[in-house]
């Protein structure tokens, strides 16, 4: 059969968004990826910035002051939020990975209620914990600024 000279018609990165038509789990997956990449980027910066302590207390204090000058601590709060989300959602994914929370395979009867429905209480619980941790971090940022 001759090959078809067609592009693969992939939805690409924008396909992750799905124009708002995707289910909640798909957007959680997207946030997991974005938060993971943000955390890795932050870690790379963090490794170099914290190296300032090798140059003594003045250099360290100068760095601490400088980070506040550019609102870096707000960015750090976002990183904290990213961690909270990534960690709790990651716990959910590992639980699911071991087959828990998915429900057993069943005879499909319309209207179908798949494993995504079965694991939703777990997901909601994890998102509530994420929200609590992010709120605690926000309270800290406002009430006890460094």
């Amino acid at each position: 059969m001759e090959s078809i000279p067609s592009p693969p018609n992939r939805l690409g990165l924008l396909g992750w968004l799905g124009g708002g038509r995707r289910g909640i789990e798909a957007y959680v997956f997207l946030c997991q990826r974005v938060s993971g990449v943000v955390l890795l980027l932050y870690l790379s910066i963090h490794v170099f910035l914290t190296g300032a302590r090798l140059f003594g207390p003045e250099a360290w204090d100068r760095l601490c002051k400088m980070t506040h000058l550019f609102g870096y601590h707000y960015f750090e709060y976002l990183v904290f939020a990213a961690f909270a989300f990534h960690a709790f959602n990651g716990i959910r994914l590992v639980i699911i990975e071991f087959g828990f929370g998915l429900g057993r395979p069943e005879r499909p009867v319309y209207p179908y209620r798949g494993s995504t429905h079965k694991q939703r209480p777990l997901m909601i619980a994890m998102m509530v914990l994420t929200a609590v941790l992010i709120a605690a971090g926000g309270f800290e940022l406002v009430r006890f600024p460094h």
């Binding site: 799905g18 995707r22 289910g23 789990e25 798909a26 959680v28 997956f29 997207l30 997991q32 990826r33 994914l93 699911i96 179908y112 798949g114 494993s115 995504t116």
Partner: peptide, 10 residues
């Protein structure tokens, strides 16, 4: 990565 879309559209 358990985005669940496959199950949603099946």
């Amino acid at each position: 990565h358990y985005a669940g879309e496959c199950t949603r559209v099946c």
